[in-house]
Design a protein around this nucleic acid. Structure first.
Lengths: 351, 351
DNA sequence: TTGTAGGCGTTATCAT
DNA sequence: ATGATAACGCCTACAA
């Protein structure tokens, strides 16, 4: 039964070596005798020695912690997409010996938190969530020299920072085109907040497809708000009840698509016979079967795993931190169209 | 423009005081001259001084970090209930100057992570998620002396630890009774994994209500698995298609209830005219309107905010950490029945 | 290849 | 009420 905590000093005394040598052996320095290293490693394992993170941080100036400030609205709304993103990021961190520090904050508090992170040396870097079209956080982070990476990207802040984004414009161009190919003309868009860069680009892709096919964009059939289930429900009801109801609706999130499904059900519409629904699908894990079988998705949509995105972003940020001289790295992911059970040809009676 | 990082030494030199005095002033020691304290506070604010967490941890042995090891299945499934729970906990931590460290792990890895936390002094305490009926983690945590609190509770591990739980048995007794009062007889239960304590107790509550009313429990109408949307969908379809279909179904989670809704829709059943659905509702934020308005919930169900639970548990754990001599504190929350649009009287034609 | 010694930024123990 | 000084546990020049 090894005693709870042994430190470097005790371990080195036990071995009859200096702390320096033990430390070097443990940290894989090349100069230590292979023989010595083996002894050290064995003793460390035997006594269950683990270096103290506080002491290492103090000595090296590195925390091996990545900060995530996840936005939470005033009404305590937290987007469940983050759960999957964080799970993916966490996987990357664990593999590299990093930890994840989580803060929730309103947008107003976020800048102050970054400043605190920097001045207290609380974390080695941060992941920026939910970038706007024009994103003030980027300048703040640059000015305080806190390494960061953006999940998504911006439109107005140049390209001098690291990001990973899905190709939102192409995704929505293709998804819209898919519906147009099925004969739909009045296609609605239930989008995220248009100040958010991803929503902006999705609208753009939708517009391109509509214009290319010379279809009219009807303002009543385009809505924009924070994505959640009730919003999808309400926006859908409003559109169904207006004087130009759509024969197909695009959603920016599967959460609002689920709300849309509920709304169409309530109006007695069958999907896809009476109306088609399609969505961007982040492959949230609670909607997967969980048995590892790739199932035929229920919703037709563009797919991209947000969990994989989290993992990749985590790796990119850690690379950047371990290699500070490197240039900004960017990554654009295409998404994949998967046809599910919620889209079909435009019904005859619909305009 | 204050320089990025100033430390205690620099600050004290600037003030012409010793580090000791400055530290004491900052940490609210009573003996320092009120005059001096004001000067120190002013200078600290001016130079944006913040103590280094690594240094404080090293000196005090306290990290002011709470660890959360959230379970993730082999198929990378992460339960979105955690997002809301963590948001609540995070709020409590921020208020008390604590931070949240997140790890994802399979159940097998969890014990090792706790040991690592303890031996590296990585965190001051942990929150245990998803307790089983008989929970080995509790003994591990006790033996390594890592302060902890359980979200939920166990059945087999005595009462010598802190926990907060909702009264699951009572919740499901009441919810079942509500359906019985509406005339339902064949009532199904789509439960969580029965090795989990909460699911065990919910089954118990359901059984009590059924037995009290001398209603038969039909094995085909009781199912148990990890709660997610596809599971709710599949379990519901199976029940609807069997030779003794239910007139009402109870769900242990709103996620599976949503799957149930999808399944009934697919079978052409109207809710609540043809079938009633009811659920335990953790008030997940992505299903709330987000405008702060209390809305009439869609599903009938027993309500208890998991975000509030996170907040309360966070506070309880911090109390326990700051006051190590205190006894284990436990807390049992009742949930509230809210009648939504998904339950109604048993249809005539149904047995 | 190994060791010595100083420092990382706090807090805490004793003095004064 | 304030100050020296020694930890806390690790890393890393510099020396040998």
């Amino acid at each position: 039964m090894p005693k709870s905590t042994i430190n470097l000093k005790q371990l080195s005394q036990h071995l009859g070596l200096s702390q320096t040598t033990v430390s070097r052996a443990l940290n894989g320095f090349p100069e230590v005798n292979e023989n010595t290293r083996q002894k050290v490693l064995a003793a460390a394992a035997q006594f269950n020695y683990r270096p103290s993170p506080s002491a290492s941080s103090l000595a090296t100036g590195k925390t091996r912690i990545i900060g995530h400030v996840v936005p939470i609205s005033e009404h305590k709304m937290i987007n469940p997409h983050f759960a999957d993103f964080l799970a993916g990021a966490s996987e990357a961190y664990s593999a590299a010996g990093y930890d994840l520090l989580l803060r929730t904050a309103t947008p107003k508090q976020e800048e102050e938190i970054y400043r605190e992170f920097a001045s207290r040396n609380r974390v080695d870097g941060v992941v920026v969530h939910g970038p706007l079209i024009d994103e003030p956080r980027i300048e703040v982070l640059k000015s305080i020299r806190l390494p960061f990476i953006v999940h998504g990207r911006t439109t107005m802040n140049g390209d001098d920072y690291s990001w990973l984004d899905v190709d939102n414009a192409t995704s929505f161009r293709r998804l819209t085109q898919h519906l147009i190919d099925l004969g739909h003309k009045r296609i609605a868009l239930v989008n995220g907040l248009e100040t958010m860069n991803f929503a902006h680009r999705r609208l753009q892709g939708y517009r391109e497809a509509m214009e290319t096919n010379q279809l009219e964009m009807i303002p009543k059939l385009i809505s924009s708000a924070d994505m959640n289930e009730p919003y999808g429900y309400n926006a859908t009801l409003r559109m169904l009840d207006c004087d130009t109801p759509p024969s197909a609706i695009l959603y920016s999130s599967i959460l609002s698509a689920m709300g849309g499904m509920r709304a169409t059900g309530e109006r007695g519409l069958r999907v896809p016979q009476d109306i088609s629904l399609a969505t961007f699908d982040d492959e949230l894990s609670f909607l997967q079967t969980g048995d590892g079988q790739p199932r035929e998705p229920f919703f037709t949509g563009m797919h991209s795993s947000i969990q994989e995105a989290g993992k990749k972003l985590g790796q990119m940020l850690i690379n950047q931190i371990s290699n500070p001289a490197s240039n900004a790295e960017t990554c654009l992911w295409e998404s994949k169209l998967i046809v599910g059970k919620t889209t079909g040809p435009r019904p005859r009676e619909n305009s």
